[in-house]
Nucleic acid binder design. Sequence first.
DNA 1: TATGAATACCTTGTATCGCAAGGTACTTTA
DNA 2: TAAAGTACCTTGCGATACAAGGTATTCATA
Lengths: 109, 109
Amino acid sequence: MNTDNTKSQMRKGMLEYCIMLLLRHQPCYANDIIQRLHEAEMIVMEGTLYPLLSRLKRDGLLGYEWRESTQGPPRKYYVLTDDGQEALRQLDASWEEILRTVNILKLEK
Amino acid sequence: MNTDNTKSQMRKGMLEYCIMLLLRHQPCYANDIIQRLHEAEMIVMEGTLYPLLSRLKRDGLLGYEWRESTQGPPRKYYVLTDDGQEALRQLDASWEEILRTVNILKLEK
DNA sequence: TATGAATACCTTGTATCGCAAGGTACTTTA
DNA sequence: TAAAGTACCTTGCGATACAAGGTATTCATA
């Protein structure tokens, strides 16, 4: 069995939730997100993150602003929009539902 | 935003885990699984379940045996193999990891 | 006996997503 | 001025959930 693949599949969709949780309180640019997720024990690849951010932007859940860096090129800082806040609430509900399901199944028999 | 799609995405991979949890203690056939998952507040489509069961069988994580039904055609009862038990332990670990990540992110700031 | 409904299994086609690999552009440093 | 570092993005691939549609067996009933 390919455990890595299963873990990868398990995280599908979860990533979106985790990133929006991250952006709840402060704007971040890509490397911030990668690092903070890493600290939370979740590995994200650039090739995963950038398309995801673009999609959330396109869907109106995220906005961004350019900020100069003290070192290197400018950075895109993403923020949650109002629609994003609302979507996050729905994701919270979905997460609770999954949590409930797994707990029910784990406790059975 | 398409909430249904997000929920669907969130469940990718989770389904595999949930089904193996279900089969831990007793053999089930497809409709059993659909019904028991429904009771645990998770909806699964036939078109999702059958290919998934076939794949887990092909990977050696599940086995099955035919059993007569008192009513209707015979049923394929799936069971966890030893490899399946081992894989389930790894999935438990992956699940704990995701749980930890989400909790960390939810508690931040 | 024949036929229709119910049950159970499976396949195909589509959309979406994570990921590896590769690419572009700007900034700093040697 | 060239090389290294930083930041952003795209392409191609494999995997998966789902809707829709299909096959086969059993049972009830006309």
